[in-house]
Amino acid sequence: MNPVSWPCPLPGGGTCEEAALQFDAGRKARLLIVPALFDEGNRMRRFTVEVMRRLDHAGIDSFLPDLPGCTESLQPLEAQDPTDWLDAMAAAARHFGASDTLGIRGGCLFTPDRLPAFHYAPVKAASILRQMVRARMLSAREAGREENREHLAEMALAKGITLAGYTLGADFYRHFEPMTADPDAAVIAQEQIGGSGLWLRAEPDENAAQAEALAAIIAGELAP
């Protein structure tokens, strides 16, 4: 596995370097993985890399780029728009010569259109936001403040909002909220993986059997 960088388009033109992890042996099957988003991204990171290791053993190259504004990215998250993320993942797919793509949870919303896609446990953007807003309300309440959902949504649309430590711009919030995953993707449900999804865990966790199961499903479709 190598950490590499790739040229990510900037909204105003030009590019900036973003990081990615890759298993690249120049093989025919080349899977671009769009990571889970925000807090779930942290909880699913190790699992995702474990899946990549297993795909490598099965003869499949894989690439895990950072979304601009996330993980190692130097771009400000609050300046991002979902369109930028779609453009970024399309550019990553071209750069790495991806043959297929895998979205994980919220990452399913950003898998490039032109590639055959697997979607592992896809989730609607509205569900992600609902949970993050709820977390914000709970922590406000714990601190002795009351916040209500309508007010937070108004604020988010007017000037952006910080949810669970992630600062989202107003445009991001507005454009992200209605997003749903492409219905044409091959959905891999948690029932096919066994056990409960690791994104539910309060702390990041790992599960070799689940990583094995997801890699096996993908390898069954793509392996040379």
């Binding site: 807090d39 949970q131 993050m132 709820r134 309300m137 709970l138 922590s139 309440r141 539910l200 309060a202």
Partner: peptide
């Protein structure tokens, strides 16, 4: 923490097929 509790409540809604209003929490 609050993020884990928010996840727990969402999961509760999905698996018990209920809707939890914010003011009930």
């Amino acid at each position: 923490d609050s993020m884990a509790v928010a996840g727990l409540l969402t999961e509760l809604e999905d698996r018990l097929d209920i809707v939890i209003d914010d003011d009930e929490i």
